[in-house]
């Protein structure tokens, strides 16, 4: 009974994670400028990765693998925001600006 519950939870986490990752991928393609796209990518890194790793942790049960997975999660939570930050800053320095709404509208029409 417990096993089934855990496996359902794990499945739910994995599916949610994958779904979010998909939406962010779409966002990456559809968003108008660099910063909004990066927003999509950055969030996907932390949230999706978190959900997926948790899903895997539930599947692995309590073992050395779980510990390793948690380490991976910790590592990701440190590095991906930092990477997003560095990227945004580099973009800002390189002269990328947030695009105006009107421009987007005109370019879409």
């Amino acid at each position: 009974m417990w096993d089934i519950l855990v496996s359902y939870c794990s499945d739910a986490l994995l599916i949610t994670g994958s779904f979010l990752s998909l939406t962010f991928a779409i966002g990456l393609l559809r968003f108008p400028d660099f910063y909004t796209r990066m927003h999509a990518a950055g969030v996907s890194d932390t949230l999706c990765a978190g959900l997926i790793v948790l899903g895997l942790v539930l599947q692995a049960g309590i073992s050395l693998v779980t510990l390793k997975l948690l380490f991976i999660l910790l590592f990701l939570w440190f590095t991906s925001p930092t990477a997003s930050f560095a990227l945004a800053r580099a973009a800002h320095r390189a002269g990328y600006r947030v695009s105006e709404q009107e421009e987007v509208a005109s370019s879409n029409s």
Partner: peptide, 18 residues
């Protein structure tokens, strides 16, 4: 360039021993 980013430096220094 990166050496002027306090955040990056801090995180990197945290990570390197690991």
């Amino acid at each position: 360039d990166l050496s002027h980013h306090p955040v990056l430096r801090y995180i990197a220094r945290l990570m390197i021993p690991f």
